[in-house]
Amino acid sequence: MANRFFEGAAHAAAYAKFRPQTPASVVDRICSFLKEKYEGSLRAAADVGCGSGQSTQILSPHFTSVTGLDVSPAQTSEAIKLNTKPNVSFVTSSAEKLPFSNNSLQLITAGQACHWFDLPVFYKEVDRVLVPGGVLALYGYLFPQPIHGDLTEKLYQIVNHMYISELNGYIHQGSKEVYLEQYGADKYKLIYDDVLEIRDDTHFVDKTTTVAELTGYISSWSGFQNFESKCGSAAAQNILEDFQNRIMSTLNVATSPEDTEICLRFKYFLLMGRKPLGP
């Protein structure tokens, strides 16, 4: 069974507020790869595990119709509320039973999501609903790296410490598989090499934010949500405050966390595979 960790309304709202927007370059690369062997019009795409819709709306200019799917009603409700594209819709659905007919989609994407799926079942569904020559694209991003002159490495280590040490024992295995680079392996590589043929690690997005918003991003981690559910809101608030205080102490500024700007760099990785054109 697929894992379900992002279903609360408050978590969905935090996810929508603090998660990064998918770089346009990622979608451009996906569409370019699709068009290399698929010559038909780009009619229909699906974004599976769409969360609050950041990774769905960006497909809108390239397809006649785009559907975002998530197993969480709270996430799809948030996505519908935030949607601004008339050709984008959202459906509550699992990744293991896609609500599409056979050979009906040119593209299926999963952004920062497929590590939660029952992959063998998901892959069978992908094969069923993709047209011949259609593409499956899986992508994600690593820890945000604060970019701040000679303090960059110190700040990054504080983020890293929060994940590996403070939340040790509360991080789900699926999340670790996204961040395998932190553990000496190669993002997604071990579990996806059997079906994916293209790998691209060149994309990133820089996001100017505040220290308070960086702390909010940490609160959207599934590991933090797990910690809070098991240890209580007071303990969760304490580790967030400690994280924020360490960041502020390292920056050594007089402004408040809400008024202290910082640049975060999200490095993306993209893996793609194509359904064969013939038997």
Rank of each mutant, 00 (worst) to 15 (best):
F100G: 08
M272E: 01
T64H: 15
A137T: 03
L130M: 09
G53Y: 02
P257K: 09
V26A: 11
S41A: 15
F269R: 00
S41H: 13
I147Y: 01
M272P: 00
E181D: 13
N252W: 03
T92G: 03
A254V: 09
R128C: 12
R19T: 06
C114Y: 11
I147H: 02
S222L: 14
S104Q: 13
T202H: 13
Y192I: 06
A236Q: 08
D150F: 04
Y183S: 15
E228S: 13
S52C: 10
H172P: 07
D186Q: 15
S25Y: 01
S233R: 14
I158V: 12
D194L: 03
E228H: 02
Y38G: 08
T215Y: 11
F227Y: 15
A234H: 11
A235I: 00
Y15P: 05
P73I: 08
R128P: 12
S72R: 02
V205C: 04
R274M: 07
V48H: 05
I262P: 05
I191F: 15
F143R: 00
D127Y: 03
T22D: 12
Q145S: 04
A185M: 14
H148S: 03
T92I: 03
Y163W: 13
L130N: 00
L34G: 08
L251W: 07
Y141D: 03
S233C: 06
E261L: 10
E78L: 06
F5P: 00
I30M: 06
S52F: 06
A14Q: 05
D200W: 06
S175P: 05
A79V: 10
K97N: 10
S60Y: 07
P23T: 08
R4W: 05
G40E: 12
